[in-house]
Nucleic acid binder design. Structure first.
Lengths: 219, 219
DNA sequence: ATTACTAAAAGACGAGTAA
DNA sequence: TTTACTCGTCTTTTAGTAA
C-alpha cells in the first residue's frame, strides 16, 4: 500500500494495466508536488519493485501498470467501496449468450480440471460452459480481471497433453452461484467470458442465443 | 493525497468521520510497518495537518477522521470507482417519504435561499421539500455526506433574523433532477434528508407517506 | 526537449527513555 | 502499560548537470 498515492496519480494520467501512456517526469512531479528528479527516481523504483512497466526515451517515459499494482489498487478500492457504500464490491459484466463449439464441455469434464473445480470452487459443475460475448464497454473490465488476484488453476504439461491455466472468479448470474473463467489458451477474443455453475444455466434461466445476461463477480 | 495509505489503514481499523476508535501507536506501527515512534509522530502530523481528530492518553489514542480526510478519500474512491467499474460514482440512499410540518416550504421560498437555489443549483425549486426518513443502514452514508465537499450555502445572521447553512448535493430521484439538502439547523434527526426539485415530486411520482424512494446522489 | 546521475541538504527513522 | 521527546543515523530530496 506504500505507493497508493503515486499509482492513483498514474491512474489520473490515464495509465492502466492495458493502456500505456507517455508521461514526462516533469508533469508527474508537478502532479505529486515533487521535483522532476524525484519523479524520475520514483518511476525507476516502481519498475524495480514490479508496479509498472516502463520504457524511457528522450521524449518521455511510456508507463503501464502491472498486475501487482492493479491488485493493490483493488485492495484499496474494496476498503473505500465498503466505506462509501456499505456494500461489498462486485464487478458487474453484461453480455449476450452464444453457442460455442462444444470445447467447453470437453474441458470442464477433463479429470484434471474437474478435480480443480471441486477443490478450488467448491462445486461440481454442470458439464458445459455458458459462453458470453461481452458488450464493448465491459471489455475493459474483463482486462482488469485478467490483472488482479484470483483463484488460479495452474496449467501444466506432460508427455501426453498440456493443460492451459485458468483464472476463476466466484460470482452469481441471476442469483445462481457460478464461476467466471478466464481461460489462458482460448481461441475466443478478449470480449468472451465463460461461466460454469453447478446447474445447467441455459435450462435453469431459459437462455437462448442472443439473450442478455448480467454476471456479478465477487472480488 | 499524501497520506492515503495511512488514512486507509485507519479505515481498516474502523476509524470513520463519525466513529472514534481507540488505537495504540504500536498496532498502527505494526500495520504500516513502521516503529511505534514513527506511528506516534505520524498521528501528531495528521492532526496538525487537519486529517484526524485525536485525544491521546496513557491507554492509547482516540482517533476519528475529519472532513478533510473524508474528502481526500472520496477523491481517491472516485478515481478507483471509475477504473474498476467504468462508471461515475453515485451514492444511493433509500428511505420512506413522510410529511413534515410545512417549514420546508417556508424555508425554500425565503428570498435569500431562493436566490441561492437558482444560483448554486441551477433551478427554481417547487416550493416545498420532500422529506425522507432513511432506512437505518443508510444513516451511515448520510453522515459521510455531512463530511465531504458539497455545494455550500452559507448561513448568516442580521439583526432581523438568522439563516442556517445548507449543504447541497445534486442528484436524481427516479430519474428526475433534484437536490439533496442537509440543513444545518434542523429539528429532524440524522436519519432525515430533504429533497427539492424543479417539480412537485409528490405529484410527479405519485408519492404517499410511507412510500419507499431511492435517491441517487452525484458526487 | 527528455531521463537520470552526483552531491549536499533536508527530512524521516528507530533506539533509548521520560512522563 | 501508554505517548512522545531527543539524538544519532540513514534515507530521501532537490539543485546542478551530463547524456
Amino acid at each position: 500500500m506504500k505507493y497508493l498515492d503515486i499509482l492513483l496519480a498514474l491512474l489520473k494520467l490515464g495509465v492502466r494495466c492495458d493502456r500505456t501512456v507517455l508521461i514526462t517526469t516533469q508533469e508527474l512531479g508537478r502532479l505529486l508536488n515533487i521535483s522532476q528528479q524525484s519523479a524520475s527516481r520514483l518511476l525507476c523504483r516502481l519498475e524495480k519493485e514490479g508496479y509498472i512497466q516502463r520504457e524511457s526515451s528522450p521524449i518521455g517515459t511510456k508507463v503501464s501498470l502491472t498486475s501487482k499494482a492493479m491488485g493493490e489498487l483493488l485492495e484499496a478500492y474494496k476498503i473505500l467501496h465498503k466505506t462509501f457504500t456499505g456494500l461489498q464490491y462486485e464487478m458487474i459484466l453484461c453480455g449476450k449468450v452464444f453457442t460455442g463449439l462444444g470445447e467447453g464441455k470437453y474441458y470442464v469434464t477433463l479429470p484434471y480440471y474437474y478435480r480443480m473445480w471441486q477443490e478450488k470452487l467448491g462445486f461440481s459443475p454442470y458439464p458445459g460452459t455458458l459462453n458470453i460475448r461481452l458488450e464493448p464497454e465491459y471489455i475493459r473490465l474483463r482486462k482488469i480481471l485478467e490483472n488482479i488476484p484470483a483463484i488460479e488453476i495452474k496449467g501444466y504439461s506432460n508427455k501426453l497433453r498440456s493443460y492451459g491455466g485458468v483464472k476463476c472468479f466466484k460470482g452469481e448470474i441471476e442469483n445462481i452461484e457460478c464461476a467466471l473463467l478466464l481461460i489462458e489458451r482460448t481461441h475466443y477474443g478478449p470480449d468472451v467470458i465463460e461461466i460454469i455453475a453447478p446447474v445447467c444455466l441455459r435450462e435453469k434461466l431459459k437462455l437462448k442465443d442472443g439473450d442478455k445476461v448480467k454476471v456479478r463477480v465477487k472480488l
